[in-house]
Amino acid sequence: MGFKLLSKLLVYLTASIMAIASPLAFSVDSSGEYPTVSEIPVGEVRLYQIADGVWSHIATQSFDGAVYPSNGLIVRDGDELLLIDTAWGAKNTAALLAEIEKQIGLPVTRAVSTHFHDDRVGGVDVLRAAGVATYASPSTRRLAEVEGNEIPTHSLEGLSSSGDAVRFGPVELFYPGAAHSTDNLIVYVPSASVLYGGCAIYELSRTSAGNVADADLAEWPTSIERIQQHYPEAQFVIPGHGLPGGLDLLKHTTNVVKAHTNRSVVE
């Protein structure tokens, strides 16, 4: 069995187990497998329904001669939608809004960016022009300005110390501490036991640490421990890039980060 097929099978099995364990909360999309990078042309966006009122959005972007996937989250909030992270750029984010209108038909009224990198804030200006209120932590807003990236308009308070959590509509926002970046936030959907790890969490097929220019490698494993301790009931975990899975993604990420750190020390 090929690795790609095995990865998709694991996603399907995880979703099936969740649907059985929580039949009222989960209505997993039966329309197909989780979209992969090879299936999404740059400039297009796919939506994948995880649970009743919960979707991931998947886009792709060219970077350094390669094409990478990027995940975000959409959560229903009454007759409105909360968006977590842009679709990595203005063109993708405009396509995301169009796809949401086509498939869901509810307005996106608020959006949260989970850290300051372009795959999370690139497209904020498109959201703002569409009347979406954009939010991020003060740290993310400051770092985005320093980096020359787009800056969300509103500040999220109460997320300055490791372990801080605040309720934001249908989700809980959690600051686990520094990891992929010093400002990275985690998003949890309690009604569906869905954990969105953003770039602080890796997919299972990833074996290298990737972009760690703004990471705190020493603190990252401790931050992941905080996530595990705060959300032990999480059933569906979405990484910032690639295929979702279960809580095993947290341990896998820790292993990859520690291996990278150990290699760096040896070198």
Rank of each mutant, 00 (worst) to 15 (best):
P107G: 10
H260N: 06
Y48W: 08
I40V: 06
S27H: 10
G148F: 09
H180K: 00
K258T: 06
V212H: 03
S193P: 10
A15G: 08
S205N: 03
S181I: 00
V266H: 15
R120T: 05
I17S: 03
G32C: 07
A165F: 12
G245E: 10
I50A: 10
L9P: 08
I201Q: 00
H115P: 00
V132F: 02
A178M: 10
Q49A: 09
S137R: 06
P170M: 11
V112P: 01
A59P: 02
S27F: 04
G32I: 15
V171P: 01
A133T: 10
S62I: 15
L127K: 01
K8T: 06
L217P: 03
F116H: 15
A90L: 04
I50L: 05
N184T: 11
K8F: 00
S181V: 08
T182P: 05
Y135M: 03
G242M: 02
A111L: 03
V126F: 10
T253A: 13
L243A: 06
F174Q: 04
G65S: 11
E233K: 12
G177Y: 01
T153N: 02
H241C: 01
I201L: 12
L9Y: 09
I227K: 00
M18R: 04
M18E: 04
E233S: 09
I17G: 04
P152S: 11
V121N: 15
A59S: 09
I238N: 02
S7P: 06
V124D: 07
L250M: 03
V28W: 11
A94G: 09
T140V: 10
N71Y: 01
Y231S: 04
I50E: 10
K258R: 12
A25R: 12
A87D: 01
S264Q: 15
P69D: 04
S155M: 10
V108S: 07
D79N: 13
L249C: 15
T134Y: 04
S160A: 11
I20W: 13
Q103F: 15
L247R: 10
Y68I: 09
S137T: 03
S22I: 15
T86W: 01
L173D: 00
G246N: 07
V126A: 09
P239C: 02
E101P: 15
I100W: 01
G131D: 06
H230P: 01
G123C: 01
S139D: 12
V67H: 15
A95H: 15
